[in-house]
């Protein structure tokens, strides 16, 4: 987008900036990422009429944006467009975001190769201690009904706009594969990190020449979970032993009891 338009936009933002600069309570905000999943098209992303992303390149993910809950009008224009009023490549689409939720809005190809934007809600709920989650999303063209295979296990098939998971898995590495008609069209090792949701996107177009079908990955923090306890010992040999003075004192008491008991018996006679 042209510098002048950006500067004008900046001026307009400064006018409204005071209100935005106030840290809103986190509970009232939504967390939003934006993923560019359209191969070969550098674009500008406009939100509510102003530029959110200038010269956004394919395969790029934004950092987490904390936005007040509400409905945002998202419009994607060509990167050389004069301003946000230019002809839309995607949208304008009204995308509602709710407080306390976490989203990735993906700009991507539909099954037929046309463009769209899909808001996915990201799971941030805690996995068991030592585990992470894996989510797989389909945002690719010409790849309906592809099969997802994780470390040799089929997770089923899905279509454009679909999602498999999230599934909780022990931290480590899995091999993720997408198969079309039994043929592997994408394969990669993907780390599963404890307390993180690893989201794998299958994007691009396997029918393009050459194929632009590929994986993109983002990670989202999960809630924390602790181990259920600490075991700590097994034989019992470190259990507290009775010290000698206890036996000494008890022995003295027993002796006293014996002597006095006999005296008592004698006195009875």
């Amino acid at each position: 987008m042209r510098k002048t338009a950006a500067l004008l936009g900046a001026g307009a933002l400064m006018a409204t900036g005071a209100a935005l600069a106030l840290p809103a309570s986190a509970a009232d905000d939504a967390t939003v990422y934006i993923l560019h999943g359209v191969p070969g098209a550098t674009v500008d992303v406009c939100v509510n009429g102003s530029v959110l992303l200038d010269d956004f390149t394919p395969g790029t993910l934004t950092p987490a944006q904390s936005l007040p809950a509400g409905t945002y009008t998202v419009k994607v224009v060509a990167s050389d467009a004069a301003n946000c009023d230019a002809t839309a490549l995607i949208g304008p689409a009204d995308i509602p975001v709710e407080a306390g939720k976490n989203y990735t809005i993906a700009a991507h190809l539909k099954a037929d190769g046309s463009l769209t934007a899909t808001p996915f809600e990201n799971d941030t709920s805690a996995a068991p201690a030592g585990q992470g989650k894996v989510t797989v999303r389909h945002i690719a063209a010409n790849a309906e009904g592809v099969e997802v295979v994780a470390s040799g296990t089929s997770l089923g098939t899905f279509n454009n706009g679909g999602q498999i998971g999230p599934a909780s898995l022990p931290a480590g590495t899995i091999n993720a594969e997408v198969k079309a008609g039994g043929t592997v069209v994408a394969s990669s090792d993907v780390p599963v990190t404890a307390a993180k949701n690893t989201i794998v996107y299958a994007w691009g177009d396997p029918a393009a020449s050459p194929s632009t079908f590929a994986f993109a990955v983002q990670t989202v923090d999960l809630g924390h979970s602790a181990p259920s306890g600490v075991p700590g010992g097994e034989s019992g040999s470190a259990a507290a032993t009775v010290p000698g003075w206890v036996f000494a004192a008890a022995g003295l008491g027993l002796a006293g009891a014996a002597v006095s008991g006999r005296k008592l018996a004698t006195a009875k006679k």
Binding site: G17, L20, T62, S188
Partner: peptide
Amino acid sequence: EPAVATITGGLVDATVI
């Protein structure tokens, strides 16, 4: 219609696993 500030940094290449 809350205005949003342009994101200028922190973009990551999601294609790098």
